[in-house]
């Protein structure tokens, strides 16, 4: 442990209001760092690079827990763990790619502690759940002592590890609308090994065809290929209104290269990421075509 633990301060709020008040007050001095499952924080503490010395421990706040199914979708409390996501029957049926992503986060021990909002707030471009949220047009509830607001997930990141959330705001929930009827969801994490790994490329797609078998709705979301998790809008445009054909896939793949900006880093290379991002797009389209053919 390279961090001096004796110098750290942890505030344990009794309620969400109490937490927001404490967070709001701290902004004028050393801001409290919100702490949920702590699975990312402990890596920083061990390496001697903690993000701050004052922490706001949210773990005990019941208001931030729970998965609620509503008419148009589901609402996941900020502290929903990946284990809870894995085991939720409605999520399993309606959002299989979110469940698939949850199953690939770290390992069981991590999934028991790590939270959805923690994954969002840590803002790593490699966050496993983030492309799924983006592909499903998720909305994020944020709240401060000043009030509450809703932010579209795809507008949540301003830049590398930088959120559009203000310093006194907390993420309280994530809302996912049910996907269009008969849509095809897809998730694929390409990590450094089969478990306990960080993504080299992580991709989630969602696609629905119209009666003419043309692509009516499509979302392509990638992680680990740019400073932030992003939607491949050029590639989406190349697909929208087109049939599921190899030539279309090739055009989308070419467009994808303009959407993403992968780099060489400790886990992989730019070339690999470019190639795999394109391959995964084609794999997604093949899988969608296979799925159609089976109907």
């Amino acid at each position: 442990m390279r961090s001096a633990l004796s110098t750290l301060e942890v505030v344990r709020p009794r309620s969400l209001d109490h937490a927001l008040e404490a967070l709001g007050r701290s902004v004028s001095g050393e801001r409290l760092v919100p702490l949920a499952g702590g699975t990312d924080l402990f890596v920083y503490l061990n390496a001697g690079t903690p993000p701050g010395t004052r922490y706001l421990d949210l773990w005990g706040l019941r208001e931030l827990r729970g998965i609620r199914v509503r008419d148009g979708g589901v609402r996941l409390g900020a502290l929903t763990t990946f284990r809870e996501i894995r085991e939720h029957p409605v999520l399993g049926r309606r959002f299989p790619s979110l469940v698939a992503a949850a199953a690939e986060v770290g390992a069981w021990q991590i999934q028991n502690r790590a939270t959805l909002a923690g994954n969002i707030a840590n803002a790593s471009p490699a966050g496993d759940s983030l492309p799924v949220l983006m592909a499903h047009d998720a909305k994020v509830d944020v709240r401060s002592a000043r009030g509450a607001r809703e932010v579209a997930f795809e507008r949540l990141y301003r830049g590398y590890r930088e959120l559009t959330v203000d310093a006194d705001e907390l993420i309280t929930a994530v809302t996912l609308p049910f996907p269009p009827a008969r849509s095809f969801p897809f998730f694929r994490k390409v990590g450094t090994r089969r478990a306990q790994s960080i993504s080299k490329v992580v991709f989630s797609g969602l696609l629905a065809l119209d009666r003419e078998r043309r692509i009516a709705h499509v979302r392509l979301a990638y992680g680990s290929v740019a400073p932030v998790t992003l939607r491949a809008r050029r590639a989406e445009r190349a697909l929208r209104g087109e049939p599921l054909a190899a030539s279309v896939a090739a055009r989308a793949r070419a467009a994808l290269a303009e959407d993403i900006a992968p780099i060489d880093d400790i886990r992989s290379s730019r070339d690999y990421r470019l190639a795999v991002a394109g391959n995964l797009l084609e794999q997604f389209l093949r899988a969608a075509a296979e799925s159609r053919a089976r109907r």
């Binding site: 054909a245 190899a246 997604f284 899988a287 053919a293 089976r294």
Partner: peptide, 29 residues
């Protein structure tokens, strides 16, 4: 084949057929 559709017609996702068709799952090669 150049077309994307129907490549795995008649087979379910993730299924490996018993004799000779080999592994193929969810669009994977």
């Amino acid at each position: 084949p150049a077309g994307l559709g129907g490549a795995a017609a008649g087979r379910r996702r993730g299924e490996t057929s018993r004799n000779g068709a080999g592994p193929r799952a969810n669009g994977r090669r």
